[in-house]
């Protein structure tokens, strides 16, 4: 039954299987009272799979539904909330992480397909207390306002520099186009990346 496949996220976000068949228009997320009481973690269902990921150099084991995105697995199961959810559709870049060294959007990545892969999130970029050059430059250039897009901007920028796409402000803008900043901190973000690329 639907109740068994509900996760905490499903209840809070109204995205669980039991609700899927109902029309979404005009529907608000059910409150906790009208839903069965949530279990602390996801309730085990037959489709669930155990996966092992290397996250920021640490081996972590998770039990996920096939539909769980890497983003939700990181935030809600691994407790790594530095990676942000903006659009959940690939169009804002807030959820950018590196998989096996390449930048991707974690909202369109299924966690079950990351078995055995190396995932780097914003929490894993610094080396001990030493910030990654992009982190330091973002601070130095005051390259954010609300900060919501910032982890994604930093992950994308760190990859961009590795890829060799920091040759000019225009090139940086083009190769940062997958990261949207609603506060419009772009000029300082570009300056920070330029700065970090010469230091890095």
């Amino acid at each position: 039954m639907a109740a068994q496949s509900l996760t905490r996220r499903g209840i809070l976000g109204g995205t669980a299987a039991g609700l899927a068949a109902a029309p979404l228009i005009g529907r608000t997320a059910p409150s906790a009272q009208e839903s069965p009481s949530p279990a602390p973690g996801p309730v085990r269902t037959p489709e669930m799979q155990d996966i092992v990921l290397q996250v920021n150099g640490r081996r972590i084991q998770l039990t996920v539904e096939p539909r769980t995105s890497l983003l939700d697995a990181l935030r809600e199961q691994a407790g790594l909330t530095g990676t942000k959810k903006g659009c959940d559709r690939g169009s804002c870049g807030a959820c950018t992480v590196h998989i096996d060294g390449r930048r991707v959007v974690s909202c369109l990545t299924l966690a079950v397909r990351c078995q055995g892969r190396a995932v780097t999130t914003i929490e894993g970029l610094a080396v001990g207390e030493e910030l990654h050059p992009v982190q330091a430059a973002i601070l130095h250039h005051d390259a954010f306002q609300c900060g919501y897009c910032t982890p994604g901007q930093i992950m994308s920028a760190a990859a961009l520099i590795e890829e060799g796409h920091a040759g000019s402000p225009d090139e940086i803008r083009e190769w940062m186009s997958g990261n949207i900043c609603r506060c419009g901190a772009y000029p300082n973000i570009v300056a920070a990346i330029q700065d970090a690329s010469v230091q890095g």
Binding site: V105, L160, W175
Partner: peptide
């Protein structure tokens, strides 16, 4: 097309 992240996927 798309963004660098999506082109990596």
């Amino acid at each position: 097309a798309a963004s660098p992240q999506i082109r990596n996927m």
